[in-house]
Design a protein around this nucleic acid. Structure first.
Length: 488
RNA sequence: GCCCCCAUCGUCUAGAGGCCUAGGACACGAGCUUUUCAAGCUCGGUACGCGAGUUCGAAUCUCGCUGGGGGCACCA
């Protein structure tokens, strides 16, 4: 490939990054990286009515969290303006005027009221079974007439002049060839009466000026691509390669939306999902390597990704699988990184991490790692590592704490107290000795002891817990358990 | 209503005419292992939407139907 690959992710700053957007961004990013190309972030903020404070910063932050870095975009090298459409209004206007001058667009002075009226008429007319399009009223206006109205201060928009016959088609890497009859295309507004361009004008002008080679975007744009193609032709520009990605779906197969689950990347982040897992998951929604591998790091995705292996059909966002991937990535994560995450979770839960030694926390991690899906679960599933036991699971008490248990456990405590800085093997040996002496099986001591030190009936290996807590703490907890469980 | 796109297990998917009595993964069920819970391992069930063609042969090609989705703004 001698061509230079330049792709872009061009979201509108509506406040948060949608997971569908994340996938689009990711595919663009992977494609750029795998082809040695450039990945650009561009902000499509041409709708003044939908501006959200801080949205751009949030978008960038979220992308950064996902480990998707852009090469050009707002903030890069101090260049903000060129990548934010609202900073380039004059350029769009110039291009639109050029289309008007060349007969490919025209001024339209129709009011909202009139447009609303014809829309109503066409929609309910039994004879005119067409989509509710503009009736091209102003298309026949003479240049003089238009200039007169314009200088009289009448509000106007600029519309593209769609050919009345023929058809427009284009090739799409994913969809192959798409064709549509020009007769059903609307005379799309290019410049709104507030002077801002519409998406359709802005996207074409920007993609061309930024020398975008591949337009990889969501399927919701497929229907309007013919209009874009017509614009490219009017300008005399070369078409980029198009690739329209299928949509992400709700469990009921409708377009992924709030209501049926979380759609904001920020929400998954807040819930404690690993960025690696979310990226891996979203990558697999519509793409696969062609073999059975499913766990991928970003580096591996870059190496394996190809647009040719992207599917056409929509994919349901299945949280179960995302959870499993989170688990998979968590167990592969280096200790040091998990430790950092654990520290954050502790702080979040109001526990000062510095209260524990790093060695202790690493021990907890190694004991819990394969038992949790989220780092956060470590606190929820085994709070006893960080706080004294203040609650004993009633079911477990009922099942494991028998009348003779206090005596057994007392003997155990006595044996433990003789140990000098015991390791897990020492606890085990001591417990077996006591079991022998009492003529009972080890499990009859193991279960009550687990209950005493953790308050629960399930968790990591008992001896691991004991070794982590340390002898004195274990003895303290046994004592407390005897007191609390015997009186009740 | 009109236009466009899509169609393999519940879900993500492999499959580019014979390798498919359709493979993998998640989820689910059973068992093994076991001090518990997980993990791990083994096994199990469930899918080519329907109908015509083309072909010696179709999940794979063609057409129709059905179903689903998207679009039809001075929103992106």
């Amino acid at each position: 490939m001698s061509d230079t690959v330049r792709v872009r992710f061009a979201p509108s700053p509506t406040g948060f990054l949608h997971v569908g957007g994340l996938r689009t961004a990711l595919y663009n990013f992977l494609f750029a990286r795998s082809r040695g190309g450039t990945f650009i972030l561009r902000i499509e903020d041409t709708d003044q009515t939908r501006q959200v404070e801080g949205a751009v910063e949030n978008l960038i932050d979220t992308l950064h969290w996902a480990d998707i870095d852009f090469d050009e975009g707002p903030g890069k090298d101090g260049a903000f303006g060129p990548y934010v459409q609202s900073q380039r209004l004059e350029m769009y206007r110039e291009h639109a005027e050029r289309l008007v001058a060349e007969g490919n667009a025209y001024y339209c002075f129709c009011t909202h009221e009139r447009l609303e009226k014809i829309r109503r008429q066409s929609r309910y007319s039994g004879t005119l079974k067409q989509s509710p399009a503009y009736d091209r009223h102003c298309r026949s206006l003479s240049t003089d007439e238009a200039m007169r109205k314009k200088s009289a201060g009448e509000p106007y928009v600029i519309r593209m002049k769609v050919p009345e016959s023929g058809e427009t088609s284009f090739d799409d890497v994913i969809r192959e060839r798409v064709t549509i009859a020009n007769s059903i295309l609307d005379d799309q507004v290019l410049i709104k009466s507030d002077g801002f361009p519409t998406y359709h004008l802005a996207v074409v002008v920007d993609d061309h000026l930024m020398r975008i080679s591949h337009v990889i975007r969501g399927e919701e744009w497929l229907s309007s691509t013919p209009k874009h193609v017509l614009l490219y032709r009017s300008f005399g520009w070369e078409l980029p390669v198009f690739a329209h990605l299928s949509l992400l779906l709700n469990p009921d197969k409708s377009k992924l939306s709030k209501r049926q689950g979380d759609v904001a990347v920020e929400e998954y982040r807040a819930k404690g999902y690993l960025n690696e897992a979310l990226v891996n998951f979203v990558a697999l929604l519509g793409w696969n390597p062609g073999d059975d591998r499913e766990i991928f790091t970003m580096e591996e995705l870059v190496r394996e990704f190809s647009l040719e292996r992207v599917g056409k059909s929509g994919a349901v966002f299945n949280v179960e699988k995302l959870n499993w991937l989170n688990f998979q990535h968590l167990r592969r994560k280096p200790d040091a990184e998990v430790l950092q995450l654990l520290n954050k979770e502790l702080t979040r839960a109001g526990i000062d991490p510095s209260h524990f030694s790093e060695q202790y926390l690493l021990g907890v991690i190694s004991a819990m790692r394969e038992r949790v899906t989220f780092v956060r679960d470590v606190l929820e599933k085994s709070p006893y590592f960080f706080r004294p036991v203040d609650h004993y699971d009633p079911d477990v008490v009922k099942k494991r704490w028998k009348p003779h248990t206090p005596n057994h456990v007392r003997v155990l405590a006595e044996e433990f107290s003789k140990l000098q800085s015991p390791r897990k093997e020492d606890y085990e040996a001591a417990l077996v000795r006591v079991a022998d002496a009492l003529s009972i099986k080890p499990p009859e001591l193991i279960h009550p002891l687990r209950l005493a030190v953790s308050g629960m009936g399930a968790g990591p290996g008992l001896y691991d817990i004991l070794a982590l807590l340390g002898r004195d703490e274990v003895l303290r907890r046994i004592q407390t358990a005897i007191e609390r469980l015997t009186q009740s």
